[in-house]
Amino acid sequence: MKLKISTYSHISPSHIQVDGKDVLATIPRSSFDEDTLAIYKSLGIDYPKFYKMDAPSKLGFLASELVLKSLDLKQYYKSEDIGVVLYGASGSLDTDQKFQATIGQPTDFFPSPAIFVYTLPNIVLGEICIRNKFKGENYSFAMEAPDSVEICSFIQNIFEQEQVMACLCTWTEFQNRDQYRSIMLVIEKEECLQKRDMNEKFSNFEEETLKQIFYKDL
């Protein structure tokens, strides 16, 4: 079965890109909080939940909005056939540290439920599903560095076994406010893209392409 990357985005301290091309170039890069707010505003969406998200969720959420803005997957697939597969190394560690700070001292012990709910690596995946009403397969993995062979093989598998018809696959890694990147790929079957009469040249979803995307600019 031939899989294609129908579109992908990349957000890092130095990049805001869709399909390898810079977008939102007018946003002056300053800090994570200002940058993400500027990206959110530029997308022209009204989604107050964004403000409540922790940093890793904001990062992954915006990367997903960048690709889904011009591609309404639900127009082509049932919501339960759209999967999301997440990979990352640090997961929710930044938020874990914030939560730990709320319970660090017996005299200042006020654990925050709003922070605690984000102390799981898979929460960003939940945010993306809630926003888009994606109800399909959901996988959340931790690995120290993106492993193109593993990722390719697994995604290929879940398509072949008809667990998903389309899927978002992301490497979302938030170490701290200076070191972060989210790469969000939309993966579809070649035959589905052909049916939509899409004549654009899409990249094949294969190890080499993944390596190029994941390790470019590193």
Partner: peptide
Amino acid sequence: GASANDANHLSGPSRTGEG
């Protein structure tokens, strides 16, 4: 087996059990 997302709320289970 299989998995599915409620696409409803981060911490509250779906009220319908749909997922």
